[in-house]
């Protein structure tokens, strides 16, 4: 197991993102069994991760339809230009 708490804290993100190798996981979790501070710290990271993934309750989304309308207008405009070019080239 890891002996140092700073080693454990370095590995937390790998662990919660499920990117850690078996040996790392093993050494990590055996340390947590004997160290309550690292356990708390780890749980705080897990909590933050799941909270970050929830939508923000106080936030309304920006107006995507407006942006989409604008961009598609530009797409169409540009294509109209190209269409004229195609006709001129006789294709």
């Amino acid at each position: 197991m890891y002996r140092r708490c700073d080693e454990v804290s370095d590995k937390i993100s790998e662990i919660i993102d499920r990117e850690a190798a078996f040996l790392t996981r093993f050494r990590f979790y055996t340390h947590l069994m004997v160290c309550s501070k690292c356990r708390d710290y780890f749980n705080q990271f897990k909590l933050l991760k799941s909270a970050s993934r929830e939508p923000n309750p106080g936030e309304l989304p920006a107006d995507f339809d407006k942006v989409m309308g604008f961009v598609m207008d530009e797409v169409e405009k540009e294509l109209d230009k190209n269409r004229v070019d195609d006709t001129l080239q006789g294709s």
Partner: peptide, 30 residues
């Protein structure tokens, strides 16, 4: 689009600017 706009909104901090940013960037990509 919605994901990009959400990302932009929280990067720049307000909706109106984010809409401009996404518009500009997408037209540029096009």
């Amino acid at each position: 689009g919605p994901g990009l706009l959400g990302y932009a909104t929280r990067m720049v901090g307000d909706k109106a600017t984010a809409e401009d940013v996404v518009q500009d960037a997408l037209v540029n990509v096009f």
